[in-house]
Design a protein around this nucleic acid. Structure first.
Lengths: 203, 203
DNA sequence: CGTTGAATTGACCAGTCGGTTAAAACTGAT
DNA sequence: ATCAGTTTTAACCGACTGGTCAATTCAACG
């Protein structure tokens, strides 16, 4: 029910708890697999109480996703066309890797949505995301034209960064199953750094 | 009901239809998100009829997953310790990429299962998969020790191959959203070939 | 043809789902 | 203490879920 701007402390506390709980549940079970009872319980609220703060299950999900899109695109925006090409790209890789480490649930929420055909964020993908990637690719192509980094397919370069970094969050269980012992991401940063330096160092 | 070995044609036809339909539905909605009615309808059967062939929803899912694990591990087994290191690894990369192209639903079924914590295939991950990866890593480490390919973290090398190839199946919607026009995987093979050659060519 | 086992179905069930409602409990300012 | 507004909850609802069952239809073989 709260839509007037000035949120009371109790409103803030509860909506935060709901978002936190919903992130947990949605990211591990997907939208249809998650239940309001699960979320309510995890948030320490009753189900009707939960629906007092959000009008529907879908509203919670959409709210999480729209916040997520902002967070997710931010690192890409930080790439500076006037910076050192190799360092800019590597910094982006490391930023994305840190996000996988620090926000694995967000990564899995996103992965779930994409896997299921992105029914709720298709527009954002074809809109904001595509625009931002196009811009980034343009920057990268300029760097390549200037011979400051090696020539590779710029779109696939971007895909590779997404794929390699998010893998550690999305497929965490698998990585852990194979890599028993040390924490799984211990050497991931070094590996990716090395990979992209080798690939992008001009001939 | 059919568990006696000799399957009639009608049994084969229907179980095949069920598996095909279930693969469609499970891979796009996940286990909990899929319903028996959806699967039955997609298979052209009634729900009770479907349950005449498989005892439960879970049984269908488990059956698909166990088949999948075999298919999924096969390309890794084909790596020949006595082959040319670079060519063996690149062949594996291309095999995996072809699987993403030809069996995207299987890839997404697997991804869904892993995302949700691999509740049904954890044992296989920690067992067969880990053993096979350990074996492969051993082969790769030998090649590196002999100086025939560059030194990189072998486990993360394997992860990177999984990640980069499966990405095109699992995140197909996203890739398509950004890469309008040409079919999304047109240049993926060349890109990955180039990437691994650069990274693995000895200094 | 008739018969037998395999295949199929409509009707049904108990449990869970997302969501509603009306009444109760709580909160804080006066 | 009062009282208006906010917050919480018990009870409930219709729709849907996975699954059952008895009865029917079908296919094949003598």
């Amino acid at each position: 029910m709260p839509d007037g701007r000035p949120q009371t402390r109790i409103q803030k506390k509860n909506t935060d708890a709901i978002r936190e709980a919903a992130l947990d549940v949605f990211s591990t079970h997907g939208f249809r697999g998650a239940t309001l009872d699960q979320i309510a319980k995890a948030a320490g609220l009753s189900k009707p109480n939960l629906l007092y703060y959000y009008p529907s299950k879908e509203a919670i999900h959409v709210s999480l996703l729209s916040d997520l899109m902002t967070t997710w695109l931010a690192p890409l925006k930080q790439i500076d066309p006037n910076g050192q090409p190799m360092e800019e790209i590597l910094a982006y890789v490391h930023r994305k890797l840190e996000m996988s480490r620090d926000y694995p649930r967000e990564s899995r929420l996103f992965a779930n949505e994409i896997l299921q055909g992105a029914p709720r964020i298709r527009a954002a993908l074809e809109g904001d995301l595509k625009l931002l990637v196009d811009r980034t690719v343009q920057i990268i192509e300029n760097w390549m034209a200037e011979g400051r980094i090696a020539r590779v397919h710029p779109y696939h370069l971007v895909f590779s960064i997404w794929s390699l970094t998010q893998h550690y969050a999305d497929f965490d269980v698998q990585v852990r199953s194979v890599l028993t012992g040390e924490p799984p991401m211990t050497h991931a940063g070094d590996f990716l750094d090395h990979l992209y330096r080798k690939m992008l160092t001009p001939a």
